[in-house]
């Protein structure tokens, strides 16, 4: 029997956090292996639908990470994103998604150590909650 370990969907901005993950890699920094990374052009590109889709398909956690406020490659994508995410997180936690399943961060491409810290924090938080219980769409078996 394999021990359960969380599956976490990570939406990482191409211009910052994705680069930080790369830098963590080439710097041989260790971080948890629980992430399925999806590279996006901007945290502002992340629609709430993407986050719901991840949960529906069985993600135990979702992590969205973009550039620090003021550093957006497109100048203001992350500012718009921040408002959207604030209300989305509130709504999802209100209907019963546990706090600790959905995470957001700002990590620049130079911050490999912050990437490792946050990745560890996210993996631990999701791990502590156990497998996702809600919002998983059961798919019909196809013979």
């Amino acid at each position: 029997m394999n021990e359960w370990s969380p599956k976490i969907t990570a939406f990482l901005c191409n211009w910052c956090t994705y680069g930080a993950a790369d830098l963590a890699g080439v710097s041989r920094l260790q971080y948890p292996p629980n992430f399925r990374v999806i590279r996006v052009p901007c945290s502002g590109r992340v629609s709430p639908k993407f986050i719901l889709a991840a949960f529906r398909q069985g993600a135990d956690g979702v992590w969205v990470s973009g550039c620090h406020p003021g550093d957006c490659h497109y100048l203001e994508g992350n500012f718009y994103a921040r408002r959207k995410f604030a209300l989305l997180k509130g709504l999802l936690e209100h209907i019963g998604i546990e706090p600790g399943r959905l995470h957001f961060s700002w990590i620049s491409s130079a911050e490999a150590t912050k990437f490792v810290e946050v990745a560890t924090k996210v993996a631990n938080a999701v791990g502590a909650l156990g497998p996702a219980k809600y919002l998983i769409k059961q798919r019909a078996e196809v013979a």
Binding site: P69, G70, E76, F79, Y80, R82, R83, K84, F85, A86, K89, H103, F104, S105, W106, V118, K121
Partner: peptide, 16 residues
């Protein structure tokens, strides 16, 4: 509308 503008000082406490 709410999602059509922002302030640099917007609520940020939920982001690491």
């Amino acid at each position: 509308p709410l999602f059509d503008f922002y302030k640099t000082s917007d609520y940020n406490e939920f982001i690491y």
